[in-house]
Design a binder for these strands. Structure first.
Length: 549
RNA sequence: GCCCUCGUAGCUCAGCGGAUAGAGCAUCGCCCUCCGGAGGCGUGUGCGCAGGUUCGAGUCCUGCCGAGGGCGCCA
């Protein structure tokens, strides 16, 4: 899944999978059965009694070979047992024909050593991207007001996805597209000017409370549109920064008018013969590229639709050399995916280089009632208010706890509570306990000796091994989460590790008076490894890892 | 009408085509001589419905039912 040669050391965690896969492949060849077309699958069984690793090759290849799965599995096991791979303690046949590998605890001890040796920067860093340049565009709220609570989900998701891609060997660029041109901006400026003059905003104007507040700051003699944009952007930038979300580029739509990028894009499309004029408007023949209707680029009044600048923007991104464009959109925009794909294809680009994760809607609850998020109504809930109420860490983790494919119910009371029902405390408390152990060790004058002097083989308690098992899964969890564009898989893993650490903490004293010094040493290294894993997970989620709470 | 996403425990949600579907919360019990009890342990009910593909389906396909979101010369 990731390079094992030049790109870095061949770490154990990745290596064990390869070792077992190769051994299975050799055994298959030896008994004269072709491997399944889908390859030799190896998985981590959900149940402990099914071993540490399990393969279904016998099941998957038996039919084509005209063999009985269990008999084939038995032959494979016989071959494998003749020359067992490293760390393998037992190989068993189970169920309809699974081949289950049971490993010695030694492999988990080596995992722990690998974790603390590689550290936060080196462990679980699969090189999936090999330096590929990826542009991740997210939030891109209109500069006509604060970011609202619903933007929080896209912000947390987009930023964590960027962190995942970065960790997995991509050259990531975070961008925020500013729709700072057009009717909405004019209405926003007019609304500010009206409020400043003590008047009602125009019809279809902006009526939120923040317009009054900002209008009070509006200096005399400035362009309310330009000033309003800067005011809104400053507010958005500050709020997002509180949530640990920053951008490499804030890309102005207006700047493309000045640079000529929009007209150049239109000319480009015209030159490719995919544009036609009808009813006084200019259209993109997007139906030639999979869209269900043709789309207007220039309205009959001469104004651009939102689409043409959007196309120009994506054309610009590709011109800047990005091999992959990822746009994080809300569910209310999902219908625009086909036309943007069509536009990119019309421009001669591979539409598959463009992908759009869609975040489903967020329902905000407070005191058991749904809180409205509408921007047009006066009572919008801003992201800043949410952060004030629940704190940035709790907000981020909550947004990332579940798949973006499902509608989210964000209960402000639950997320704000400083209690067990709040997952963020459960996870952060684990990290705080790690630091507490370090602190207590220092107070007692217990120093952690070099790893080479520690006897990790003393770690045989199920609680200890469970922590190591979680850590052994992190590299593949990171890779899977990245490939699936699913940061919530990291959140799930972090919760599991935290839970296992709490269990270890409860049952396995590191510094107790009756704990032998050598065991204390081994457990101090286990604590260190857990710390590395938690730090990696929390960093990917953009959640802080506090030393005390 | 068409398109997208979802439907899993009382609630909020995990679940890479695998073996007896998992967490947290809530309920009810239990655990404080020792590293922070914001913790640990135990306790039960569930894959919306019907077909299909597969050795094997919560997962893939089709239909139905239900929820949310889209179907502008608005952004």
């Amino acid at each position: 899944m990731w390079p094992t040669g030049t790109a870095g050391p061949r770490w154990l965690v990745a290596g064990i999978r390869e070792t077992l896969t190769e051994a299975l492949g050799a055994a298959l060849a030896a008994v004269g059965v072709a491997a399944p077309a889908s390859g030799i699958a190896l998985e981590r069984p959900a149940r402990r009694e099914h071993g540490d690793w399990s393969s279904n090759v016998a099941l998957a290849s038996a039919k084509a070979a005209g063999r009985n799965p269990r008999e084939l599995a038995a032959e494979l096991v016989a071959r494998l047992e003749a020359d067992p791979p490293a760390h393998v303690a037992a190989i068993e046949i189970a169920g309809p024909g699974f081949v289950n590998f049971r490993l010695h605890d030694t492999w988990l001890h080596e995992v722990l050593a690998e974790v603390v040796t590689a550290g936060v920067d080196g462990f679980a860093r699969p090189d999936l991207g090999q330096g590929a340049r990826v542009n991740v565009e997210f939030v891109s709220a209109n500069p006509t007001g604060p970011v609202h609570a619903g933007h929080g989900r896209g912000a947390a998701f987009g930023d964590s996805l960027a962190r995942l891609l970065d960790r997995c060997g991509h050259a990531v660029h975070r961008e925020f597209y500013i729709n700072d041109r057009g009717v909405q901006m004019e209405l926003f400026g007019a609304s500010l000017a009206a409020r400043k003059a003590g008047l009602e905003p125009p019809d279809d104007g902006y009526r939120g409370e923040y317009v009054k507040e900002w209008a009070a700051e509006l200096p005399d003699g400035v362009d309310p549109v330009a000033w309003g944009e800067e005011r809104a952007l400053a507010d958005q930038r500050a709020t997002l920064a509180r949530m640990n979300v920053t951008f490499d580029v804030w890309f102005s739509e207006k700047s493309m008018v000045e640079s000529g990028a929009i007209t150049a894009t239109l000319d480009d499309l015209r030159g490719r013969g995919v544009v036609f004029d009808e009813d006084g408007a200019t259209w993109l023949r997007s139906t030639d590229f999979g869209d269900d209707k043709d789309r207007v680029l220039v309205k009959s009044d001469g104004e651009y639709t939102y689409l043409l600048p959007d196309i120009a923007y994506h054309r610009d991104k590709l011109d800047r050399g990005f091999e992959r464009l990822i746009d994080v959109w809300g569910a209310d925009h999902h219908g625009y995916v086909p036309r943007m794909r069509a536009a990119l294809e019309a421009l001669g680009h591979d539409p598959d280089a463009f992908e759009v994760p869609i975040t489903q809607m967020v329902n905000l609850m407070r005191s058991g009632e749904e809180v409205r998020l509408s921007k047009r109504s006066g009572d919008l809930v801003t992201l800043a208010e949410v952060l004030d109420e629940v704190g940035p860490d709790a907000a981020r983790l909550t947004f990332l706890l579940q798949s973006i494919d499902t509608r989210q119910t964000f209960d402000l009371d639950v997320v704000a509570s400083q209690a067990m029902e709040n997952p963020v405390f459960y996870v952060q408390y684990a990290h705080a306990r790690i630091h507490s152990i370090r602190r207590r060790a220092a107070e007692r004058g217990v120093e952690r000796a070099p790893l080479a002097d520690a006897d990790l083989s003393l770690l045989v308690h199920e609680r200890e091994l469970d922590v190591a098992r979680s850590l052994s899964e992190l590299p593949e969890t990171v890779a899977a989460a990245c490939n699936a564009r699913a940061p919530h898989q990291i959140a799930t893993w972090v919760r599991e590790l935290a839970g296992r650490f709490h269990g270890f903490y409860h049952d396995c004293y590191v510094l107790g008076d009756d704990v032998p010094p050598a065991l204390t040493q081994a457990r101090l290294w286990l604590v260190e490894a857990a710390s590395v894993g938690l730090a990696i997970g929390l960093d990917l989620l953009g959640v802080s890892a506090p030393e005390s709470m």
